[in-house]
Simulated scan of single mutants.
Amino acid sequence: MEPPLLALDDVHSGYNHHTIVHQISFHINPGDICSLLGPSGCGKTTTLRAIAGFESVSQGSIKLADTLLSSPKKSIPPEQRKIGMVFQDYALFPHLTVAKNIAFGLPKQASKAATIETLLKLVNLTGYEERYPHELSGGQQQRVALARALAPAPKLLLMDEPFSNLDVDLRRRLSEEVREILKSQGISAILVTHDQEEAFSFSDKVGVMKDGKLLQWDTPYNLYHEPRSHFVANFIGQGHFIRGNAISPESVATELGELTGNRSYNWVVGTPIEVLLRPDDVIEAPDSPIKAEVVQKVFKGAMTHYHLRLPTGSIVESLIPSHHNYEVGEQIGIKVEADHLVAFSSPTDGNKPSVPL
């Protein structure tokens, strides 16, 4: 079995004797593209900076392949780690041309011109060698920053919210292009972002962080469908929790009827339960006795995204084909169709996840 490219083991890190991240452990394999995702201040950038060598490690270790990069007793300088970095503000030298910006990190060698030519072609900027950063668009500047980071052939690329200064459409297109470039070159990368759509579309694995801790490191699919904590379930995707009570290891009685999953949980009958319902779990059912009031609607072409208020005041969301057009204030018949339940013990019961047996 191939060893991981990068491994963090019980990492504690921060600055000015103040620990920001605690007990961070994960690994990435060669060729993996990953993201650290979470709200502002959760510690994702501190984790990235610790990997890069800009922050010290007070406990645990960081290894790149077989090389120990950081521990309480050892720290390899950032420039010796064979790790590339792409920053939010691009960090290009304004007085240097595109070619010279890319060449900045290269050793003095005869093949430098050939390397620059190859990288320009890779990032689709052939012919821009003699332009200066101020003569480029934001997306072009970010491509130059990527080419410069790739120039020394790093083993790992770190990206700190590199697309956040771009408009939405360009951001999406560029993130797709960068992923294709990295995959084509077999380069592993870690992206820091607070945008879950970006993290999901960009990454093979995503780590969700909160208050300096890594809550779950998993595939985008598993984070959405198999969240391990109430926070991850609520943070990832869209949806709302409704309350109920366990009536069997597989079922919960709720105001939307008895909801049954495809597995057994470790809850006791009668336990207060919260069930997460995504918009795709709540479907239109005109003949259903359960009605909900339209409180908000967003037209999305083939589908309309409805926010619906249940008789108890609880809110759920639903995606309904747009040829059925309901107005705000109108009642809709609904039912739940969920392959499995994303359910947790209610906060009054310790807010502990209900684990499938």
Rank of each mutant, 00 (worst) to 15 (best):
R263L: 12
K183C: 14
L125Y: 07
F200H: 11
E255K: 02
R131E: 05
K297F: 10
I334S: 04
K210L: 05
I83Q: 00
V355M: 14
T312K: 11
L166I: 14
I24D: 01
Q23K: 01
S13W: 01
R179T: 12
S188V: 02
E293D: 07
P347M: 04
E55S: 12
D204F: 04
V355I: 09
Y265I: 01
R131P: 03
S75D: 13
P94L: 05
V294A: 11
H230T: 05
I20E: 02
R179L: 13
V178E: 09
A114C: 13
I28K: 00
H240N: 15
L191E: 00
S201K: 04
M209Q: 08
H307R: 02
L119D: 05
L5I: 13
P279M: 10
G270Q: 08
V252F: 00
K108T: 03
S175H: 03
I247L: 10
L48V: 07
L277R: 03
C42L: 12
D167S: 04
A233R: 12
P39L: 07
G43I: 02
P279I: 03
P286I: 03
K291R: 07
Q238C: 06
A246N: 07
E330D: 05
I190Y: 01
G257I: 02
T19Q: 06
S188N: 09
P289Y: 05
S75V: 09
S264F: 15
M1Q: 15
P154N: 08
R278D: 08
R179A: 06
G313E: 15
V328T: 12
S203V: 03
G43N: 07
S251L: 03
R263E: 10
Q196Y: 03
A233N: 14
